[in-house]
Structure formats: C-alpha cells, structure tokens
Design a protein around this nucleic acid. Structure first.
Ligand code: FES
Ligand code: FES
Lengths: 142, 142
DNA sequence: ACAATAACGGATAAAAATATCTTTTATAAT
DNA sequence: ATTATAAAAGATATTTTTATCCGTTATTGT
C-alpha cells in the first residue's frame, strides 16, 4: 500500500471538510466519517493530528467542528506528510537505511523518478481544486 | 511505505540468491539473511513463499539451499506479486474499494500514471541484470 | 450559572504485520 | 541404515497499525 489507512482517511476527510467549508459550513467527526466511510473514533484521532499540525482547523462546542481556512494553499502532500511523514518520498524501496546515490540499492535508479513523480502529483493540486471537482460529482469519497 | 518489509527482504534475498546462482552456488537461509541484513527465521518464511510460487527454487538437505534457475526471466514484479500481491499496481491510493475510471477518487487521475510507471520499473529489469550490476559493486543489499 | 455540544486526550482493545521458535520432512553423504 | 543437513511447516510471540472507549476541556446557547 502506498499510503497508510490513516492517511487515506485523512485525505478523504480533508477533501470533505474543505467541501463543507466552501459552503461556509463546519463538519463534525460523525458526519465526516459517515460521508467518507471511515471508523468514527479512528477518524477523530486522525483529525486531531491534522488539527495539531494546522492542516485543518477545529472549533469545540456547539456549532463547532472542523473546517479548512485556506484550502487553496493546502496540498495533499501536506496531509501525507502530517500523517505518514516524508518516508514515502524519501525512503528506500528495498528497505536500506541510507538511500542515496552513493549507496544505492538495485532499484534506486529505477525508483527515483517514480518517487519524484509521486511527490509532484501529491503537490500539484490543491485541496480546493479537488473540492471543485468533487462538487461537480466527478469524484467519490467512499 | 511502498513495499512491505516482507517484500523488501524478498527482493534483496532474490538478488543475492541469483548472484550466488550465477557462480553455480546455492545459498542457505542463514547466509542469505546475513548478507542482506534480515531476520533469519522471517526470511525463511519469505523464501518459502517465493519457493512455493516458483519464483526461486529450493533443495533440502546437505548441499541444499536456494537458487534461481532462470534469473534472466525473473523480474522484480514477479517477486512483488508473489509476496505483496498486485494491490500496489491496482489498489486505490485513497482506499476506495473499487478503483476505476468510472468511480474515481480525487487522486485517481493523478496516481494512475505513477502506478503505471511503478509497474514498468518493476517489470523492466530482470533479476539477472540487477545481479550483473551487483557483481560490479554498483549496489548494496544491506 | 447551567446544560448541551463537540473536539481533545489518554487508556484500552483488536487486528495485522513482523519476528521467533520448534518440529517435521526431504536429501545427501557416510 | 544411520547420521547430518537444510528447507518446510506449524505454533507462538512481539510490534505496529488500526480501531474503540471514556473522561476532560472548551464553547455555545439558554
Ligand atoms: S537505496 Fe533503495 S531506493 Fe535508494
Ligand atoms: S479510485 Fe482512487 S486511485 Fe483509483
């Protein structure tokens, strides 16, 4: 698997939250996990992480919930890094401790461009752009 | 992580086994895990899987061990599929059950070319070619 | 002030992946 | 035949990931 389950949920949640935010609404944990088809409490934990890292915003209490202020400036790579860290874009595909051009594994040269492309794709589109497509029913979140 | 630990060990082991085979020698579990820096018994389990799936060959008893008959016809994708299955090349990056152009997630179009490239890179070079580079000390296995 | 709401935080549980250990089976050499 | 060797197979243990539960804290509306 390319991304951890936590990260999958995190991205899907973020898109949904930004979707709600684009309508001026906040989204609660229950609603979110319902819409993206994820376990409620586990999703809560993930949203906590994203909130702590300022990828999304949270407000407690009545009328509270999650929202994304600046979805135009939030890219999927930010979510991936907040949850899974940067290993996906840097770690050796064959598990060697120090992946580098100086100490490459047999797949190093082959995998380098893939990782770069992966980073580019996760960095390319902002959450806002994804939401626009989502609003046009181009995408599914569950 | 792109590959599971099992798969990482599996690939590294296969390269080393093929390296030994190119010298007409067989490799034992202890030697292999020593050379690639992996836990002995766990490596044994992985080699069992590869053996059952005919990616590598095994012979029991004295002077037995693992070897690879046709390393020119074994590609890394075969090892990956034998251990991790095909999900890496087919599963939705955001965890949706049915990844397809008809029911895409927000990252579907972006990720498709990456997965294709990943498949190509894992399919491109045979284990034999990798061994040739390994013999020239171009690569490390631990 | 009080009650209701909703995220936060810590503790716990279940499942999956990783790792180890032991016994069995096949093979080879003597 | 007997013994030694090495992988296969099965059982068990540990660790990590995923998931759940519960009390706390912040905020809102009455
Ligand atoms: S050393 Fe393996 S990918 Fe760089
Ligand atoms: S639906 Fe997510 S990658 Fe295809």
């Amino acid at each position: 698997m390319i991304l951890s389950k936590s990260c999958e949920y995190g991205i899907r949640a973020a898109v949904y939250i930004a979707y709600k935010s684009s309508k001026g609404l906040k989204a609660g944990i229950t609603e979110i996990s319902d819409e993206i088809g994820s376990p409620v409490h586990f999703t809560g934990k993930i949203l906590q992480q994203l909130s702590r890292k300022k990828v999304i915003s949270a407000i407690k209490g009545p009328n509270g919930g999650y929202f994304i202020e600046n979805s135009a400036n939030v890219y999927l790579v930010d979510i991936v890094r907040a949850i899974d860290g940067n290993e996906l874009f840097s770690a050796c595909v064959m598990g060697l401790k120090n992946c580098s051009d100086l100490r490459p594994c047999p797949m190093h040269e082959q995998i380098k461009p893939v990782r770069t492309q992966l980073l580019i794709e996760f960095s390319k589109k902002s959450v806002q752009e994804l939401v626009q497509d989502y609003e046009q029913n181009k995408y599914f979140l569950k």
